Simulated assay, not measured.
Amino acid sequence: MHLLDIGEVAARAGVAPSTLRYYEEIGLIASVSRHGLRRQFGPEVLLQLKLIALGKMAGFPLETIGAMFGSAGGFELPRDRLLDKAEAIDLQVRELAALAETLRHIARCKAPSHLECPSFRKLLAAAGRDETPGKGNRRFSAERV
């Protein structure tokens, strides 16, 4: 088995060596040996780091990502949690698209003052509503205007 030095893993994965040491400390990855003081990893660590990066990008905390790694080095995908996360991301995408459209409107609005623009005032009113109990303001939504 070809072992990878911590520096090579860091460079190939695009993370700092300190991040690798932290991931090892909390049990997300494991070095298999040392060459002097430098940690050595098996090639499978690169896949693990990609899965960690994907989980982080999706918004999962490191603790949850760690729980997805099986004891035999496998990866257990909690499909129901992934579907919930995908739906939350879809909602965020819609909200961000509506926010982008609002910003475009503000930038292009010909009204002498934005506060004189009826569309802008409707957007502000919609932004201030809390239409989802327990979820806080749903920010900007084009469907509300």
Rank of each mutant, 00 (worst) to 15 (best):
L28G: 12
A53H: 05
V15I: 15
Y23E: 06
R12W: 00
R34W: 02
V9M: 04
E24K: 09
P17I: 07
H35I: 02
K56A: 11
R34E: 12
G42H: 08
F41D: 09
L46F: 02
M57N: 07
T19H: 08
Y22Q: 12
P17W: 02
L46M: 08
E8K: 14
T19S: 15
L37N: 13
G27C: 13
I52L: 11
S18E: 15
A11C: 04
G36Q: 04
E8P: 02
G27H: 05
L49W: 01
P17A: 10
L47K: 10
Q40T: 04
E44K: 09
L37D: 09
A30T: 10
G55A: 08
L51D: 11
I29Y: 04
P43M: 04
L28C: 09
L54Y: 01
S31D: 01
H35G: 09
G42W: 00
G55W: 01
R34N: 12
A13Y: 05
I6N: 11
A13W: 04
I29D: 07
G14I: 06
L46Q: 09
L49D: 01
L46Y: 03
D5W: 02
G7T: 03
L49A: 11
Y22P: 14
L28T: 10
I52R: 11
P43F: 03
E8F: 00
K56Y: 01
E44C: 03
G14D: 07
I26L: 02
